[in-house]
Amino acid sequence: MTALFPPPADTSNRDYSADIARVPATPGGHLTVGRGGFSLHYLNGSLSGYDVEAVKAQAIAAGLPVIDSRCVEFGRVVKLAISGPMIAVGRNPDPEPRHAFSYAPLIVVARSYAAAGAAVYNLDLNQAAA
């Protein structure tokens, strides 16, 4: 029997450095890792895929902010994603109070995910929000 959606090809040797290089120039640029794969967010675009461990290792080594929510209970991740603000990538954050469909600084959203149990890399969670 053939699967309708075959698993993604093993691309563990892929070099993401060109995509990763676009992130630091973007305010709010970051990598998110979740149960459905990864998303690398930068100005005027993003890159998504399933080669999670390779891109995560390369992003951390490059000093990019990384939020990995795979270890967080599914219901908590859903609540954060649906009712929390989105990360302001390449745009100004909205003023407080923030809610679903509003934009917040990366550090604000990263703190919420960290409080839920997500692993956060290359961010000082004690820094002031811009």
Results as ranks from 00 to 15, higher is better:
residue 56 K to S: 13
residue 57 A to C: 08
residue 58 Q to W: 10
residue 59 A to L: 08
residue 60 I to G: 03
residue 60 I to Y: 05
residue 60 I to V: 15
residue 60 I to M: 11
residue 61 A to E: 14
residue 61 A to W: 11
residue 62 A to P: 07
residue 62 A to C: 10
residue 64 L to H: 05
residue 64 L to D: 03
residue 64 L to S: 04
residue 66 V to M: 08
residue 68 D to C: 07
residue 68 D to H: 05
residue 69 S to E: 14
residue 69 S to N: 10
residue 69 S to F: 06
residue 70 R to C: 11
residue 70 R to Y: 06
residue 70 R to W: 02
residue 71 C to E: 11
residue 71 C to Q: 13
residue 72 V to E: 05
residue 72 V to S: 07
residue 74 F to I: 14
residue 74 F to Q: 15
residue 74 F to T: 15
residue 76 R to G: 00
residue 76 R to C: 02
residue 76 R to Y: 01
residue 77 V to S: 09
residue 77 V to I: 11
residue 77 V to W: 00
residue 79 K to T: 09
residue 80 L to I: 09
residue 80 L to H: 13
residue 81 A to G: 10
residue 82 I to Q: 10
residue 82 I to V: 14
residue 82 I to D: 13
residue 83 S to W: 08
residue 83 S to P: 01
residue 83 S to R: 12
residue 86 M to K: 14
residue 86 M to W: 04
residue 86 M to A: 15
residue 88 A to N: 04
residue 88 A to F: 03
residue 89 V to M: 07
residue 90 G to D: 14
residue 90 G to K: 12
residue 91 R to W: 00
residue 91 R to E: 07
residue 92 N to G: 11
residue 93 P to A: 10
residue 93 P to Q: 08
residue 95 P to N: 12
residue 95 P to A: 15
residue 97 P to F: 13
residue 98 R to G: 04
residue 98 R to L: 14
residue 98 R to I: 06
residue 99 H to A: 14
residue 99 H to M: 09
residue 99 H to T: 10
residue 99 H to F: 12
residue 99 H to G: 06
residue 99 H to N: 09
residue 100 A to N: 11
residue 101 F to L: 13
residue 102 S to G: 03
residue 102 S to T: 15
residue 102 S to W: 04
residue 102 S to I: 02
residue 103 Y to H: 11
residue 104 A to Y: 03
residue 104 A to M: 06
residue 105 P to F: 05
residue 105 P to L: 01
residue 105 P to Q: 12
residue 106 L to I: 05
residue 106 L to P: 03
residue 107 I to C: 00
residue 107 I to V: 15
residue 108 V to Y: 08
residue 108 V to D: 15
residue 108 V to C: 02
residue 108 V to P: 00
residue 109 V to Y: 03
residue 110 A to H: 04
residue 110 A to F: 03
residue 110 A to P: 05
residue 111 R to P: 05
residue 111 R to Y: 06
residue 112 S to H: 10
residue 112 S to M: 15
residue 113 Y to G: 00
residue 113 Y to S: 04
residue 115 A to Y: 01
residue 115 A to N: 10
residue 116 A to V: 09
residue 116 A to L: 07
residue 116 A to R: 05
residue 117 G to W: 01
residue 118 A to V: 04
residue 119 A to T: 14
residue 119 A to K: 15
residue 119 A to V: 05
residue 120 V to Y: 07
residue 121 Y to T: 01
residue 122 N to E: 08
residue 123 L to D: 02
